[in-house]
Amino acid sequence: MKEKLEQIKAEAIAQIQAAEVPEKLNDVRVKFLGKKGELTAVLKGMKDVAPEDRPRVGQMVNDARAAIEALLEESRAKMENAIREQKMKEEVIDVTLPSKKNIMGHRHPNTIALEEVERIFIGMGYEVVEGPEVEYDEYNFEKLNIPADHPAKDEQDTFYINKDIVLRTQTSPVQARVMEQGKLPIRMIAPGRVFRSDEVDATHSPSFHQIEGLVIDRQISFADLKGTLEVFAKELFGTETRTKFRPHHFPFTEPSAEMDVSCFKCGGKGCRFCKGSGWIEILGCGMVHPHVLEMCGIDPEEYNGFAFGVGLERIALLKYEIDDMRLLYENDIRFLEQF
């Protein structure tokens, strides 16, 4: 009996080892372990074995079966592995072939610059608001302390619809509109389109964008204005950026200033970009004039604040090194695709 089992086992092992493909292994399994297999036949012959020998023989049969199964499994795994390896060898691709891309559109450089600015100020607790582009003379000028005969109101700068309605020349009227709503404190920026009667050339456009900023609260100081705009400049142009505040004049702020930033091209050493000065003029700002506060219904004894105005195109042109403003309004796809 034992010899018979040994012989079956040896034969099965020999056949497993001779198998070249997984199908052959299956044949071996059927031949030896299947219902009509040789090993199964031995089990069927157990009735001829003396009852006292049966457990021992049974054990031997099971051992033989386990040994064959283990070997079958091992061989199958080896074979499949080899096949997979072979398959992958045949599947090598040229990874340097072109990629398959979804064709995406591109955002206008003005918008990219605007979103940068918005991100910075939203982070400092500013709300982004809007105002009308066609605006009352009263908001564009008078409430900003620009009286009827001020040179800034000259026709040569302002597009008039009629004597009371203009195309806003600045985003500053949004200041007046927000202040009038009377919800204090205020921290807002107001981006938008503005219009001036300038002929189109490389640095001028009759339609462009500004971003107005306004903070009104108890106890705001010029130092706060400087600090805020310094944070802004460093965020927008890099942490190395230095700022310089120069006195200036705007009718709706007092004291007023213009802010220069150190040239981000040469770091302030002086280059063609900054016309040798090392500085680039970025924005106008100042403490909101007490008359403006009064005209908008805010008590200047209790509240004060600061305001600033940035030219969006100016930032976009500088930041992305665009040398002609006309490109911004032509919408040539070869230009837009670079952003």
Partner: peptide
Amino acid sequence: SQGMTYSF
């Protein structure tokens, strides 16, 4: 892609 044109 985003374009911008004049209002007038």
